[in-house]
């Protein structure tokens, strides 16, 4: 796909989408959004970039391989759960710092857990899309 318009717009849009995905992640606890939809938006940013500029470019922009991102997501989610254990409570008990911060709001382990979901979804989606897409390119 060699479209100058798509390539140019994608550069702008990718950034906007990524910021939007983080926005969705952070507001998720109180307003529509969350790690799952945030992760999907982030993934679609990379997919758009891949379509416009090719899969190698998208991979290098992603920096880590999707495998690593999936692993990190799962680890972050589990760590967020284990925080409960460290406090002597059951696994996955939410712990909160009750003083709200500007923009982000209150901080707590559920946000960390949601961050894990975000990364897992991002990694899973990009892994599937990249696998399917690159396999096609190879045979062309």
């Amino acid at each position: 796909m060699n479209s100058v318009i798509l390539a140019t717009v994608s550069r702008l849009l990718t950034g906007v989408l990524l910021v939007f995905s983080v926005f969705l992640l952070l507001r998720g606890h109180n307003l529509p959004g969350g790690g799952f939809s945030g992760g999907l938006v982030a993934a679609s940013a990379f997919v758009l970039f891949a379509f416009a500029n090719g899969f190698p470019a998208a991979r290098s922009m992603l920096f880590f391989t999707p495998h690593v991102i999936i692993g990190c997501g799962l680890v972050v989610a589990i760590v967020a759960g284990l925080a409960g254990n460290l406090a002597g409570l059951p696994f996955l008990t939410g712990l909160w710092d009750k003083t709200p911060l500007p923009v982000i709001g209150k901080l707590g382990t559920p946000l960390l857990f949601d961050l894990g979901v975000y990364f897992a979804v991002l990694g899973v989606t990009t892994l599937i899309v990249f696998s399917l897409g690159e396999d096609g390119e190879e045979e062309e």
Binding site: H29, L31, G33, G34, F36, F91, L92, G108, P110, D114
Partner: peptide, 23 residues
């Protein structure tokens, strides 16, 4: 659970173990 978005609270707090399984 300090959240107004019930769907999200269910996902990351009330039923977080399910979510962990799902991801």
């Amino acid at each position: 659970a300090n959240g107004r978005n019930v769907v999200n609270v269910i996902l990351v707090d009330f039923r977080a173990l399910d979510t962990l399984g799902e991801i």
